[in-house]
Design a protein around this nucleic acid. Structure first.
Lengths: 340, 340
DNA sequence: CCTTATAAATTAAGCGATTAACCAATGCAC
DNA sequence: GTGCATTGGTTAATCGCTTAATTTATAAGG
């Protein structure tokens, strides 16, 4: 079992020292072409591949980016939620384009994430979603560039990438109102704990106000953010006696669950009730009826997050930034026109 | 900007040498409790966290597992396909339970994956899906434990985890036949290039044979494996003039697309045509109608893959194994009973 | 011819762990 | 008192790569 080739082997074969090989490999000093070629030939011949652990040790940079995703409570399947899947894909792609690899860990114990950052010498971290305040306080200690995606933590230590949730939700609700609906339910995650949900509720209220519809708490149905909770909310709505003709869901995944819940109870979408989503998951366009929703460029979010993070890695004193990405209404078949 | 604490710092603070600290940390020699406590106290006080790059360098083990997922052609969003998302989540969870982190890379150039394995000193690799023969030939060179998931590569170098695709497809088709259908279309990915699809076609044919239905190539609609191809297949079926009363799809994602395609053309599921899926994605139960399908325990696949891989890491001479996980019919509303 | 600058490469000290080999002190048997 | 284990550590080399400092040779300038 022969050893893997090391820098030293390359150096010997090329008749130079390891320093020379290292400089040439990292393009750091100007060596004559002849020498470069000799070294390159040796590398090729030996099939030499650098050992990044060794490099990390001297350079304190691992070319590794950590991704924090929420661990769906109790569940091991944090990737199940499509929203996270899509953004992860985008992050992986762009990170790789820039010579970084990603390490994903759904650790929910805060300390252990900090630990990961240190023990693996992560160059940066992208945090997706909202976490308890304590988390943000701890993560600062890692002294690592960090970009928050979809978070409303306003600690100035962090960069932020998000969409204008309030506006998106306003757009959604406004659209439904424009279709003649006045009794509009709002399905969402826990509003108190989730800044995104809070903003989306705000947008909903703003649109209502614009149409002089008084906001009514009984039209708001909170729960978790998954399909099952969408079904559940639909059932709660139906048994509540609230005379809604439409629902604005704060997430496609809720809207999809709701559609299922309504159908199970014999209520048709959009004939009997209209449903509006938010996110535009890939699946949304393939439902029947297609889900009208607010589109956010999920993959763009990933791209921007990586871009910003890498800028910060290269320029540690980069001033903290906040980027708000655009949203857009997409009309499909789940919202019906009613009334005059 | 004070340095991070190193082993040496801990050693000094505890009044011992680095060797002692290292031994204690790794529980390798028996030291008196008094010493252990002194060292532990120093570690706690300094907030010491070991540097895994350094450890990797000496031990040649990174506690890192690489995951290879197919890169959806041209697309950056390999995670979009739910099937991969779910299995990734499961792998991440179980890897973490065992003290490993995962590194995900959708690299499709083969050489670069081999490179990743070496430069990061990966302890093992889990490969999901099918790849060109060349890929398998190259990966062997990494000399790393590798577990193949859902692959029909029968190179004896690799472990294999999969389901009995032929049987699952047989079950699906048999079920549809038992509901009275005799003209059953088959929607699938490229059969030539994809072992899984090949097996699923086999199961379809076996079931037909059991019911004395002659296999007819015109009933087979191949394409890519995504929603859009499902729609496309549905349209092709409708314009082909083939009088199918049901379709067995080789993947839920195709079935879902097909349902959409049918509805768009005014063909109702299951009233006008029945649709049977395969995989049981999370979304499948939330469709209307719910998609009848073949359930495979995706998360179990991930768990088994990790388990097997780690066994192989610990026991490099472990004999190569093949594990076939069970499948199960799940009846929902997308297949209707017809005829007598 | 001497000085100085430049080019080409080397030397050697780390980076932060691990670990085989070694050592000193103590206890115990005979 | 001598020999031999055992206990409780230490020494120092090593993993593979990077890089500041240095050396040597060559060229250019005056």
């Amino acid at each position: 079992m022969e050893r893997r080739a090391t820098l030293r082997d390359v150096a010997e074969k090329a008749g130079v020292t390891t320093a020379t090989v290292s400089y040439i490999l990292n393009d750091k000093k100007n060596f004559p072409d002849e020498t470069k070629q000799r070294v390159m030939a040796a590398i090729a011949e030996l099939g030499y591949i650098p050992n990044l652990s060794a490099r990390t040790l001297t350079q304190r940079s691992s070319k590794l980016i950590g991704i924090v995703v929420p661990q769906t409570e109790g569940s091991r399947l944090m990737f199940q939620n499509n929203f996270y899947s899509e953004i992860l894909g985008s992050i992986e792609f762009h990170a790789r384009q820039n010579g970084y690899h990603i390490i994903i860990s759904a650790t929910d114990a805060n300390e252990s994430y900090l630990r990961l950052a240190r023990e693996r010498n992560l160059d940066g971290i992208i945090v997706i979603g909202m976490y308890p305040d304590e988390f943000y306080r701890q993560m600062k200690e890692s002294r690592t560039p960090i970009v928050l995606v979809d978070s409303y933590c306003n600690d100035h230590y962090y960069h932020n990438i998000r969409i204008d949730d309030a506006y998106g939700s306003y757009l959604a609700t406004h659209y439904v109102l424009s279709k003649g609906h006045r009794n509009i339910a709002f399905f969402s995650g826990q509003i108190k704990e989730n800044g995104v949900m809070k903003k989306r509720l705000t947008g909903y209220r703003d649109a209502l106000a614009e149409y002089d519809v008084v906001f009514d708490r009984r039209y708001v149905f909170e729960g978790k953010i998954d399909y099952a909770s969408g079904i559940d909310a639909a059932e709660r709505l139906l048994t509540s006696g609230v005379p809604a003709t439409a629902v604005v869901a704060a997430a496609d995944i809720l809207a999809i669950g709701a559609m299922k819940g309504f159908y199970e109870r014999g209520i048709r979408v959009p004939e009997d009730i209209s449903v509006m989503g938010f996110d535009d998951l890939e699946i949304s366009q393939y439902l029947t009826p297609g889900l009208s929703t607010i589109r956010q460029e999920i993959s763009q979010k990933g791209e921007k997050a990586v871009e910003l993070l890498i800028n910060n890695i290269k320029e540690p004193n980069l001033t903290k930034q906040e980027q708000i990405l655009p949203v857009q209404l997409v009309e499909r078949g789940s919202v019906k026109c009613i009334g005059g």
